[in-house]
């Protein structure tokens, strides 16, 4: 499966593990994932920026019919998080005990979890998931 391309996942490690993105030196726009060019300014001068992982919940759903590789985690909570820097990301929501408390606007913190695995023999891929701060 294309999700388990080793080199591609290696390329994404810092983004997934540490929320490394970047920030345009001209317009100061934050980018996550990081970009090579700020297309607003048409420049390639961007500074690396590590997002704090603090954010708020924008919207969520509970996925019952999951894609391959996520079967064991089903049903899983998934949503859109707005990081405190203003950038939005999609992420699984972990540590949900009572989903009636998942109200848009609640604070979230990114935590480190296993994202998926390539069967029992392949590589493991790790990254961020959002933990509601309730």
């Amino acid at each position: 499966m294309s999700r388990n391309l080793v080199a591609e996942n290696w390329r994404l490690e810092r983004s997934r593990y540490l929320l490394v993105g970047n920030k345009c030196t001209e317009c100061e726009k934050y980018y996550f994932p990081n970009v090579q060019i700020c297309t607003d300014c048409n420049i390639s001068k961007l500074d690396e920026y590590v997002f704090s992982g603090k954010g708020k919940l924008i919207e969520w759903t509970k996925i019952y019919e999951v894609a391959k590789g996520f079967e064991l985690f089903a049903p899983l909570y998934y949503g859109i998080i707005e990081l405190e820097e203003g950038v939005r990301v999609a992420a699984q929501i972990t540590e949900v005990t009572d989903d009636t408390k998942l109200i848009p606007g609640i604070k979230t913190q990114m935590v480190f979890r296993k994202l998926f695995e390539d069967g029992s023999q392949g590589v493991l891929t790790y990254g961020f998931k959002a933990e509601p701060q309730i």
Partner: peptide, 8 residues
């Protein structure tokens, strides 16, 4: 940034 995060 969607599918590999678990999205469908």
């Amino acid at each position: 940034w969607e599918s590999a995060m678990g999205g469908t």
